[in-house]
Write a protein that binds this DNA or RNA. Sequence first.
DNA 1: ATGGTCGTGTGACGA
Length: 258
Amino acid sequence: MKIVSWNVNSIKARGEHVKRYLKEEFPDVLMLQELKGLDFPAGDFKTLGYESAYVPQKAYNGVAILSKHPMIVIHEALPGDETDEQARYLEVDITGTRMIAIYLPNGNPAPGPKYEYKLAWMERLYARLKALRNEDHAFLIGGDFNVIPEDKDCYAPDKWIEDALFRIETRKPYRSLINLGLTDAFRVFDTRDQQYSFWDYQAGAWQKNNGIRIDHFLLSPTLADRLESCRINKDPRGWDKPSDHTPIEIILQEKAAA
DNA sequence: ATGGTCGTGTGACGA
């Protein structure tokens, strides 16, 4: 089972890119972030064989999950704050596996109210994942975490040290998610530095490979045991009019027969 | 480099 996460930076601007990707890679599940608008081309994806669940918002944010298999929506918002209006969380069940797509807040500038929102959001996420773990629920979470886990996940750590994506107050709660017993799928197979999922549009960042690794999949223990591969697919970042992010792809072994 | 680039929706703001 192939599961992918991709921050597309507007589904309106990147609809054709997503369709091309589905036709070339035929993932079972595709998580999308930063839809950046209320419109969503569910009909186009249906034609290609995908069911859609999406949580849109005007102009900003927005997450979706496309699935070849039957999908049941569990939560369309991160529990823990009824006043939070931002479209950043979608939790579904696909053939008995819980799957969560997130667009974690960026948090810049830090310090400031946006950063406080990010840290509070991470606390709520921790509570949600801890609850799933305590229920012994098999789950995976993918998306744009807006967290650079380690020095080797950015091109120049000294330039990022005060940034909301890399500050120690950000990395600490990310580590707490890992410490729930979750596995960073990418690091199971690849310990190299300079393996990035995002390159800024500015200053020739892509050409110079000045990137950061901020798109992740975290797996609960039974799913980590089924993990066959994880790779960052850099091809779509090189397409015409690309997103500033590129897809991260995992493959899980099929469940053993009951 | 005290720049630089995209996207939304049409003027700033977010990343």
